[in-house]
Design a protein around this nucleic acid. Sequence first.
DNA 1: CGGTAAACGGACGACCCCCTCCATTTAGCC
DNA 2: GGCTAAATGGAGGGGGTCGTCCGTTTACCG
Lengths: 223, 223
Amino acid sequence: MPAQTSHNPPPVTPDPGPDALRADARENRERILRAAREAYALHGIDVPISAIARRAGVGVATLYRRFPTRTSLITEAFTEQLAECAGALDEALEDPDPWRGFCTVLRKVCAMQAADRGFTHAFLARFPGDTAYAGERDRAEEGLALLVRRAKEAGALRPDFDVSDVVLTLLANNGVANGAGPEAAAASRRLVGYLLESFRAGPATGPLPPPAGLELDRLGGTG
Amino acid sequence: MPAQTSHNPPPVTPDPGPDALRADARENRERILRAAREAYALHGIDVPISAIARRAGVGVATLYRRFPTRTSLITEAFTEQLAECAGALDEALEDPDPWRGFCTVLRKVCAMQAADRGFTHAFLARFPGDTAYAGERDRAEEGLALLVRRAKEAGALRPDFDVSDVVLTLLANNGVANGAGPEAAAASRRLVGYLLESFRAGPATGPLPPPAGLELDRLGGTG
DNA sequence: CGGTAAACGGACGACCCCCTCCATTTAGCC
DNA sequence: GGCTAAATGGAGGGGGTCGTCCGTTTACCG
C-alpha cells in the first residue's frame, strides 16, 4: 500500500457509499448484494463473480465498478450477519448468567455458520488492509474475552478453557457445516452440544492438550 | 456406464495393475504416486494434475494413461494411509479396554487428518462407482459399530453416543485441520481432547441434540 | 543386434474465470 | 425537451487447468 499524502479527512472510502449513487445505481447495488448473499449461501464463497452478476441481472462491469475487489463484495454482503453476531455477543454480555450467555452466543454463531456456506468464510477470512472489520473484530475479541472470564469466575466454564477455543469451535463447526450437506444444521447442533458439555466446568478431568493459540485474524478458508 | 456384454471374468480392471507393466512404466507409476502423496499432503487435493506430473518428472500423458481419472489417482495414493486406519481399528478391537481402543483410534485418525491435507478428502470423499473402497469401508463401519457397542457396554462411552458421531468428529476435525494452518496439529489434538471428554460416560447430563445420521458414504469435501 | 509394441512427453484445443475497456444507454437537472 | 455526466453491459485479452493426440523414444524378446 503506497503511503498516503499525509492528510485525507474521510479515509478515502473506496466504496462511494450507497447514498452518493444515482437511483438506478443504488438499486443495482442492492440487487448485487442480494444476489451475492444468495449465491454465497448456496454455493460457498467461491462462486464466480460472473455468476453473481448474472443472478443479479447486471453486467460484470457494473459489479466490478461497485465492488472492485472480491473482498469488498464479501465484506458488504455479510455486514448484516456480522452485525447480528456482534449483537448476539452484546446480549450475552448483558445476560446475568454468563454461562448461559456463552452458550447462547456459541450456539447462535454456529447455527449461522451451518445455515450459510459463505458466512464462515466471511467470518474467518482475514481481510488484509481492510479496516472495515478490524474495529468490529477487536471489539468482538474483547467482549469474548470478558464473557469467558466472567463465565469462569462464575464457576460454570472450566478454568483451562482458552479464548482460542472459541475459534477452535468455529473451525470445527465449519468443517461440519461444509461437509455434512443437508444434515449440516442437525450435525452442527449436535457438535456444539458435545462441545458445550465439555466446556462446562465439572468434576476434575484429566489434562487437556494445550490450546492451539488460534487467533481470529490468522485464519483463512484453507490455511 | 454402458452395460457390459454379459461376461468378463476379471472385472475389467481399469488399472492394468502394477505387475503387468513394463519396468520403466512401473517405476514411473511409483514416482507418480509418491509425487501425488507429497503434493496432496502439502497443498490439499486440489493441486493440478500437471503439478503432480511435474513433481514426478513425467509428462501429463503418462499420468493420465496410468490414472485415467482424478479419483483413481487419489484412491491409489491414499491406499496405504487407509490401510493404516484400518489397522488402527483392528488394534482397537483387540484392545481389552474398548474405551482405550476407541480413544486411540479416534486420536490416530484425527492426527492423520491434521497432518495431511489431502487425506481427509480421500477419506471422506465418496467414490461413485468405485468398488475399490466399498469393501474396506463396510468393514470399517462394522468394526466401528462393534467398538462403539463394546465401549458402551463397558460403561465408558455415553449411551446416547451414535456411530454417526464418529463422522461428526472427523468432519469437525477436518475443519480444524484445514483452517488452523500451522497450528493444525495442536488444534486438532485439543479438539479431540474436548470431544473425547464429552463422549465419555459420566454423571447424567442434559439431553443432547439428536444425531445427524451422517454416513461415511454420503459425505464429500463440500457437500 | 534388430524389430515391435509399449511407453513417453510436449503441444494443443476446449473450457472457465478474472478483470478492463469502450461504445451505448439512461437518470437527473435546467 | 435537451444536455451531460453517470451508469451500463458485453466483448475480449490474459492466465490457468483439463484431458487428448501424435510423433518420438525405449524396453524387451528373439
